[in-house]
Design a protein around this nucleic acid. Structure first.
Length: 325
DNA sequence: ATAATAGTCCGCCAGG
DNA sequence: GGCCTGGCGGACTATT
């Protein structure tokens, strides 16, 4: 990911790959991710297979791939969509072809059951990872060295990233995009694709609403209301009364809809807002903190650090650097 | 960096 | 009975 040119992404399509996951990845990493009329290509995407030729995806649909495993060699980021886990174990050439770039520093990410491919390649040993909820138990059973977390949308373990089923792949792709190019770019792509820009990486693939956030249960209005007032001190009591509910019921429903407790969600939104302010304004940290609703710069630093593993000033600096390149 | 205070979260349960 | 509500309390977290 260093250097001035776009990060090279290799999308590895194996036999039986999940078409939806392929779509997700190409939608985010492919050209024109945010609008068709403006060629805003952030990554250089190569689609490859175990060998050049055609691959049968889910539902029997066939895809032609123009490159084989050699394409992985030059990649900065390798994306592995879901496949039938039962068909994975044999593919030793594939495993080797994944290990080499990883060893040299490339990031490897999986969507859905793609985690099995990484696991077989040995890339998940000693790591935290996730996969489709129905396959978390089998994955954990087959690979005891892997710390499988069934309760998250995705896991970012630095050079290894895994995501839960289907739609969570989009969350992970956006997360990667956000870290590589900032929240503004990620938001633009999310918006274009009509998905929520940021479901917290923390929680729950068992969230009640299968496709949350767009026109969902009653609390959307309260969330929107809160977003307008991030700079003000907001407590759960205030949110609950906006929703005309007892605190207990509010907390319960909020959690069911969102996967997060109200204050946690609020904190995540505040960090997110701070992030955008750091990217697009020159406001001093104190003002960013105030604007995002943190009582002090120290408090902003604490939460920013916790959520991002970077400090605000450093974040702004690397962001500027990237914009200049 | 730490500790004191205020606020949050959530299991439990009785009541509607 | 099954379902949702909301008060309570105690562990846990945020903020100062």
């Amino acid at each position: 990911m260093s250097g001035s040119s776009a990060p090279r992404v290799a999308l590895l399509i194996l036999e039986g790959a999940v078409l939806h996951d392929i779509g997700t990845a190409t939608q985010v990493f492919g050209p024109r991710a945010s609008r068709p009329e403006r060629p805003d290509q952030h990554y250089a995407l190569t689609v490859c297979g175990a060998r050049r030729g055609s691959v049968t995806t889910t539902s029997g649909l066939r895809l032609g791939v123009d490159a084989g495993l050699e394409a992985l060699a030059g990649a900065d980021l390798i994306v592995v969509p879901g496949t039938n886990p039962a068909a994975v174990p044999e593919q030793h050439r594939v495993f080797a072809a994944l290990r080499a770039p990883h060893a040299r520093g490339a990031r490897v990410m999986s969507i859905c059951t793609g985690a099995f491919v990484l696991a077989h390649a040995g890339l998940l040993d000693g790591r935290r990872a996730t996969t489709h909820w129905a396959y978390c138990a089998p994955l954990a059973a087959a690979f005891p060295q892997v710390d499988v977390d069934p309760g998250v949308l995705y896991v970012d373990d630095g050079d290894i990233l895994t995501s839960a089923g289907l739609a969570a792949g989009m969350d992970l792709c956006l997360h990667v995009l956000r870290n590589d190019f900032g929240a503004d770019v990620a938001n633009a792509v999310a918006r274009w694709n009509v998905v929520p820009p940021h479901r917290e990486g923390g929680q729950a693939q068992f969230i009640q609403a299968p496709v949350p956030a767009i026109a969902d249960g009653g609390l959307a209005a309260t969330r929107a209301w809160a977003l307008q007032r991030l700079r003000e001190p907001l407590d759960v009591d205030a949110l609950a009364s906006h929703a005309h509910m007892s605190e207990r019921t509010f907390t319960r429903r909020f959690r069911a809809e969102t996967g997060l407790a109200p204050k946690q969600w609020l904190l995540a939104q505040r960090v997110q807002h701070a992030r955008e302010l750091l990217e697009r304004t020159d406001l001093p940290i104190e003002s960013v903190a105030a604007e995002a609703g943190f009582g002090s710069a120290a408090n902003l630093r604490l939460h920013f650090q916790r959520a991002t593993a970077t400090r605000p000033t450093a974040y702004r600096a690397t962001f500027r650097e990237r914009a200049a390149a």
